[in-house]
């Protein structure tokens, strides 16, 4: 049998199909665009599966459109991370519009979680907007930030205020790389606070698209003094977890 998981996020949609041995047989990605259900439909039309579970912020829409069961991103990421790194107890997921810190019981079940509040501070969206303000492509934003020679502190975590802070720092002639570094530090401050509220020790599995940013991952492990483990394709962990959960429905 084939089991699919689809993670409909604010920026992208991921689809993962696993077989009975929980091996990934296919993984696909598309931009969410302005019609997420049309994009989701295109993705699922191209693959074969027996059962599917949806997750992500678009899960409820998917549930209505395709009559599929859903799980939250929290459960899906926890399940995916726990399988990729057996025994892991702390998961950090930073996605496009929200971020979550999750702790797990030994059996992989969610023990507790924290989620950012309604604003974009500390999320992928924040980094994206800041990269644009600084004139960096998002793909290289982290690498550039790592080149900074000095630490520069950005006090605003709010996207709007940080943006004007950045603009005035540019005007003052500060190095773009240092500003970028400061912005990454501000995201980490948020994430670290969230992790500390749910767990105080052990490795952290870092999932979601932002985990591909090398500056974020470096700063995170520095700040917390804990080992950060990153899956090969961190943005697929939610969909992978959902696929595994689909294989467990009886």
């Amino acid at each position: 049998m084939r089991y699919a998981g689809i993670d409909i996020g604010s920026r992208s949609i991921e689809l993962v199909v696993v077989d009975d041995a929980s091996e990934v047989v296919c993984s696909l990605q598309a931009d969410t665009g302005f019609n997420p259900m049309a994009e989701a439909k295109k993705l699922i039309n191209g693959v074969n599966y027996d059962r599917i579970i949806a997750t992500g912020y678009g899960r409820n829409l998917f549930e209505i459109s395709f009559e599929a069961p859903t799980v939250t991103e929290i459960k899906a990421h926890a399940r995916g991370a726990w399988t990729l790194f057996p025994g892991s107890q702390t998961v950090l997921d930073i996605g496009g519009q929200d971020s979550k810190a999750i702790t797990l019981f030994e059996n992989g079940k969610v023990k507790k979680f924290e989620m950012n509040d309604r604003c974009a501070a500390g999320t992928g969206k924040f980094l994206e907007i800041m990269a644009r303000t600084l004139g960096f492509k998002i793909e290289v934003f982290g690498t550039e930030a790592l080149l900074a020679k000095n630490d520069l502190s950005i006090s605003s975590m709010c996207t709007v205020f940080a943006e004007s802070e950045v603009t005035s720092l540019i005007a003052k002639g500060q190095s773009r790389q240092e500003i970028a570094h400061g912005l990454h530090t501000s995201v980490i401050r948020r994430a670290a606070g969230m992790i500390n509220r749910v767990s105080s020790e052990g490795d952290i599995v870092f999932t979601g698209g932002v985990a591909k940013n090398p500056c974020i991952t470096t700063l995170l492990s520095e700040k917390l003094g804990r080992n950060v483990r990153i899956p090969d394709e961190p943005e697929f962990v939610g969909a992978f977890g959902a696929a595994l959960l689909a294989s467990e429905i009886d």
Partner: peptide
Amino acid sequence: PTLRIETDYSMEDVGQLKTRVEAFVEM
């Protein structure tokens, strides 16, 4: 198990709240 929710009367955080509550129910 306890979940702390902080909210107001506006509807703008319904999506976020739903994720939190559903995750708590799953838990």
